[in-house]
């Protein structure tokens, strides 16, 4: 048994009266790629933001490498952030900076790498995600959606994080570009030996990048297993979700 990289116990989070996370228990092993699936508005993003410390949960425990991070002091949280990278749904590239400055942001600001060296590293990373060096000096707004995702991926892996979060990495991309991004995610996560946590509702993407899949419904993890187990499960919620049926136990709230 390999050790747990992330361990979440009984995590609760509510916004006012709206309960979003209602007792999440989840373990992610070192080097594993876990994909959390679930409908829109089931709290997938909130879960990731709690692990990153962007949101503070109401109760429960989150341990990264055995270190409690809920209500941890700034020093511990800073150290945690140094271990994490994230690919945001919309890319979240800084539009006041050029493409290469975006990629090298963590290297320059935190690892104190000289700018010249950082630029070379950024160009290398851009190549790794399939972009040519001539985009390095462009502004992010001059790039297409797929290219922005690639740049964002390059930025997420630049500091060689131990944990990478992917927030709906394929949303808004065409199927072929989605598959390209999936390949890049697998490549970069495996290349770094990083632990990956992805949230998505794109089943093709989930099948491809997951070692393990967990389904989030109404603030709870209602099912976990491998892709194979998912295809054979009798769980009506999972079956409805992966088959994309409007009929079933999951009622769409309009």
């Amino acid at each position: 048994m390999s050790e747990n990289k992330i361990e979440i116990k009984n995590l609760h989070k509510a916004f006012g009266k709206k309960v979003v996370l209602d007792g999440i228990d989840l373990e992610i092993k070192k080097g594993e790629s876990l994909v959390v699936i679930g409908g829109s508005g089931t709290g997938k993003s909130v879960l990731i933001k709690c692990i990153q410390g962007i949101l503070v949960p109401d109760s429960g425990s989150i341990k990264v490498d055995g270190q409690e991070i809920v209500n941890a002091n700034e020093e511990i949280r800073d150290a945690m952030h140094g271990k994490m990278g994230m690919l945001f749904q919309g890319g979240a590239l800084f539009d006041s900076l050029t493409v290469w400055e975006n990629v090298a942001f963590g290297l320059i600001e935190n690892k104190r790498m000289p700018r010249k060296e950082a630029k070379m590293e950024a160009v290398r990373l851009l190549r790794q995600v399939g972009l040519t060096p001539d985009v390095a000096d462009l502004s992010p707004s001059e790039l297409s959606g797929g290219m922005q995702k690639r740049v964002s991926l390059a930025r997420a892996i630049a500091t060689r994080p131990e944990i990478i979060f992917f927030d709906e990495p394929t949303t808004g991309l065409d199927p072929i570009m989605s598959d390209v991004i999936n390949d890049l995610i697998i490549e970069s996560a495996k290349g770094l030996g990083a632990t990956a946590l992805t949230i998505t509702h794109d089943m093709a993407s989930a099948r491809k990048i997951a070692d393990k899949i967990a389904m989030l419904y109404k603030g709870k993890i209602i099912w976990q297993g491998t892709v194979k187990e998912m295809d054979n499960t009798e769980n009506p919620y999972v079956r409805q979700f992966i088959n994309g049926c409007s009929q079933g136990p999951i009622k769409v709230e309009i």
Binding site: H81, M84, M86, F88, Q89, A92, D95, F165
Partner: peptide, 15 residues
């Protein structure tokens, strides 16, 4: 920056 998650991105980049 807030609504496009750039501020969250800063946090994840330890800034």
């Amino acid at each position: 920056m807030k609504v496009t998650e750039q501020i969250d991105a800063l946090v994840t980049l330890s800034t």
